[in-house]
């Protein structure tokens, strides 16, 4: 019995240890090292042949220089702030688009719902990269959007959308929409319609019943969806680098440049460690929300 419990608990723990904690420890270690022109491009590297003295020497060479450096160069904290801003705004935009869609799905006739759900998930079956590329084709100066708007006579000159923050917002909203729709849909679908009737019976109009009953009861889904969009959007790299312009500053892009353009692994690691530290707060809040929702269901 005890052995079985040990195995059941042990497997996920071993998994976490091997594929999350160990790599993360390595990243922390690199963030505390100094850059070097070598392979790998940092020092010191761990040499077990040096014995106890070697180990001591290794630890004495680690320091917080890279973190101090991040606070000195305004590039980094403006990138963090700008990422937070872009992630927040795009989360709210996604919510604005997703809620009506989820609501529509939940109120659609029963036999339609599976099909609608399918349509929401379907884009995931093609490569994310291809889908972002196709947005370049849509949003560009000679893209579909401008062509249609020009043809309809709504605009005289093509709009500049590609390579601006607007394009980044469009890209994020588009990409993460399903993550917002699905949790909201699942709370709305569970919602007992007799609650709406009870609200109307007690004097609510359709609209006030929506705000007083439907919206508060969909909060757990909304919160879950917001986190599911916000967390990955904060570290997003592909969308800002393909759709964003030179003034789009996001920490994911900075990280990439540090790693691959500057080959400054220690600074890049420090950037990643701080990004994770920032994300830990919303992740914990997200877990709390899920927990509360589970308790509420019982």
């Amino acid at each position: 019995m005890n052995l079985r419990r040990l195995i059941v608990i042990g497997i996920p723990f071993t998994w976490l240890l091997l594929f999350f904690l160990v790599p993360f420890a390595i990243v922390i270690k690199i963030s505390l090292s100094d850059p070097a022109i070598a392979i790998p491009p940092y020092s010191p590297t761990l040499e077990l042949s040096g014995g106890w003295a070697g180990l001591k020497a290794f630890f004495s060479q680690l320091d917080f220089e890279n973190f101090t450096f991040l606070t000195l160069d305004p590039l980094y904290y403006t990138a963090y702030l700008s990422s937070l801003k872009i992630a927040t705004i795009s989360t709210l935009l996604t919510l604005g688009v997703a809620f009506p869609m989820a609501y529509g799905m939940a109120r659609a006739p029963e036999e339609w719902r599976a099909t609608l759900m399918m349509l929401v998930i379907l884009p995931f079956w093609t490569s994310f990269l291809i889908r972002v590329y196709s947005w370049m084709g849509i949003l560009g100066k000679e893209g579909f959007l401008n062509m249609i708007l020009l043809w309809l006579g709504i605009i005289d000159e093509p709009l500049t959308i590609l390579n601006t923050n607007t394009a980044v917002y469009i890209g994020i909203v588009y990409t993460y929409l399903p993550f917002m729709i699905l949790p909201i849909y699942s709370t709305l679908e569970k919602l007992d319609l007799s609650l709406i009737e009870a609200a109307e019976d007690l004097g609510c109009t359709r609209t006030s019943a929506f705000w007083l009953v439907t919206v508060p009861l969909s909060v757990p889904g909304v919160v879950a969806g917001c986190f599911l969009v916000f967390i990955p959007a904060l570290g997003e790299f592909v969308i800002p680098s393909l759709l964003g312009g030179s003034d789009t500053l996001m920490i994911g892009k900075v990280l990439w440049e540090e790693f691959f353009s500057n080959r400054d692994w220690p600074v890049a690691s420090a950037v990643a460690v701080i990004l994770l530290a920032i994300l830990i707060i919303p992740i914990i809040l997200f877990q709390r929300n899920q927990q509360k929702q589970l308790e509420g269901d019982q």
């Binding site: 007992d192 007799s194 609650l195 009737e197 009870a198 609200a199 019976d201 007690l202 009953v213 508060p216 009861l217 909060v219 509420g296």
Partner: peptide, 13 residues
């Protein structure tokens, strides 16, 4: 007219 629902329909929140 007010109705007491068969399922009560109390607002859970």
């Amino acid at each position: 007219v007010n109705m007491m629902f068969q399922s009560y329909a109390l607002f859970p929140h």
